[in-house]
Design a protein around this nucleic acid. Structure first.
Lengths: 344, 344
DNA sequence: ATGAAAGCGCTAACAA
DNA sequence: TTGTTAGCGCTTTCAT
């Protein structure tokens, strides 16, 4: 049956006090080698392990980080999550998962649940957050970091790729290749990633006296993106864009399939397509998608750093807004600019 | 700063005892409406929420389920994980994530960590387990379910797809289509999924007086699978298999790319390819992979059921071995048998 | 229906 | 270095 071994039982077996046992299992405590040996022996024999929850209660630190994630359809997230989990694990923390309700923005309920677990920190992946919740977390002393989203709320830490710069790079690449009619398939308009990518893209276009020539909304959703692609390209050749920026890779891949298999267009001969994220399928030979890379590893490192800083010194640590630069990964889904060489 | 509101503070404000507050937040307790109202009001004003960890300590139930997962490269797992998390959340449980160390089979350390958190149950996804650990969990009274793996350990619950039956179906489909030389690219040989798929495949072949004509090991790894495909197909046409079963979709997709883009073969005209899992990319038009579907939703439901049963009645619940049947999803990567129609 | 009191398993002063 | 003691925030008898 469920035999829970407590420190008291170990203490009795080792012939020491219960607090002695506690000290043996507390890194910085002062115990004589002799006591430690006795305790360890007894513990081993009994199969004792400290109860993390009890420790959490008295120390006020659970060593649990709450992760709220909306959906895992975008393959950028599983990878990020794996890295995040591993990285935190190395620091002695673990992720407690909360799926955000798909419908509506009822993050509030989830946040309450999270706080109930006395988490030491919260990572919000691709999830928006009201300033009300933000202040509630702040009041509860729980650091929050927005992963792959940022928000105009004061004092909230966020880690994203540099979406604005990324959008610019894509535009510049397309412009340099001499494209004449440029289309854009947007993500969900409520997302900061979408907004910033589009803003950067547009800014670089404007700078060249140009603008987006065809615009559709794909909502970061595969099916919607397919339809968007049809709307934009199922038309007379002279009215079709010859270049397309899609706000993320998954939509770009769906678009690529529509272009090739439904509409019989050649990529990049008829249309250049560029995505954003550099998820693994982007590099699969069937797609070979030119795309802006999001550096998951760096983003995760920054997230963990921010979290640890706030946990270790809540007073000193200030909120920050990290935007990670990334390279444009040039593959074969977009025409190369004249004179472009692999090295740049 | 970090102002934690306790039930005592609520009690004082409401002018009742601390235990009254506890009762109000305990589903089945007996409290008068009047008291409940006072308490709720005070709680709302103070922003009080019960501390899950404290509750866990006294009740001996953490409402946390540990999930050990090896890697998320196979897109079957993110989906399964999402379903699992959502399903558990509905029952008031949450997943605590532990990444299994990639190198070696040192699951033991991870399991210890998990047990330290006093989890109410453990799900092992694609991870093997020693019988020693199994009995330790049993001794600790923590139910374990193996997800997508099974093992010849007595009394351990597992949930998988019916890999043996799946392997058979693939062989039968290939045989019916009249293929003459049949290849197999295996997964990691230590995995029960690999073993059972191959066994079923081979059994059906034997039954027809046939056998696997070409065999390579892909280890469930993309790069290894590519190399396996080259080894098997980069040869004279008459020595090449005209049909190939690959132990999972991700390897199948990698293989498909090698066949088409490196070796210039046509699929399915030159080679029929069948995978296993039915991950989302399998249905992308560029691949259109014929594959055995693993029913993630059903597998997750069974997993949750088994867990809940063991948690609610530890004595009555017996271990079980669930193998979920799935359909062969017929797309265009494999030649159709004569007279085959979409409906069956 | 309600309050007082005991205790879940642990850490952290405080003495000794 | 070690034992004693007092909690961490809660649930749960046990009286009333």
């Amino acid at each position: 049956m469920a035999e829970k071994i407590t420190s008291l039982q170990v203490a009795q077996r080792a012939g020491v006090s219960q607090s002695a046992v506690s000290r043996v299992f507390t890194p910085g405590a002062s115990v004589s080698k002799k006591t430690a040996d006795k305790v360890r022996k007894a513990a081993r024999e009994l199969g004792y392990r400290p109860n993390v929850l009890a420790r959490a209660m008295v120390k006020g630190q659970s060593r649990i980080i709450g992760l709220v994630v909306g959906y895992l359809d975008n393959y950028f997230y599983p990878k990020a999550m794996e890295l995040l989990s591993t990285s935190l694990q190395e620091q002695g923390y673990h992720l407690l998962i909360f799926m955000a309700p798909q419908t509506g923005e009822n993050i509030d309920g989830v946040m309450d649940e999270i706080l109930d677990y006395q988490v030491d920190g919260i990572v919000l992946a691709s999830v928006a957050m009201s300033s009300e919740i933000s202040s509630r977390c702040q009041q509860a002393g729980v650091p929050v970091v927005l992963f792959n989203r940022n928000q105009d709320i004061d004092g909230i830490t966020s880690v994203t790729s540099d979406n604005y710069a990324g959008g610019r790079k894509v535009a510049e690449f397309l412009l340099a290749a001499g494209h004449e009619k440029i289309g854009y398939i947007a993500g969900w308009v409520g997302a900061s990633t979408q907004r910033d990518r589009e803003a950067g893209f547009r800014a670089a276009l404007h700078q060249a006296g140009r603008d987006i020539d065809a615009y559709e909304i794909g909502n970061f959703n595969t099916e919607t993106a397919r339809q968007a692609a049809r709307n934009m390209f199922d038309t007379a050749p002279e009215k079709r864009p010859d270049a397309l920026f899609v706000a993320n890779d998954h939509m770009a891949i769906a678009t690529l399939d529509v272009l090739r298999f439904e509409l019989g267009l050649r990529v990049p001969e008829d249309v250049s397509v560029i995505g954003y994220d550099d998820v693994p399928p982007a590099s699969w030979p069937a797609y070979n998608l030119t795309t802006m890379r999001q550096r998951a590893r760096t983003m995760v490192d920054e997230t963990v750093n921010a979290l640890m800083e706030h946990i270790q010194s809540p007073d000193i640590a200030r909120p920050r807004r990290v935007a990670i630069d990334g390279p444009l990964i040039v593959r074969t889904s977009a025409r190369l600019p004249q004179g472009w060489t692999p090295k740049g």
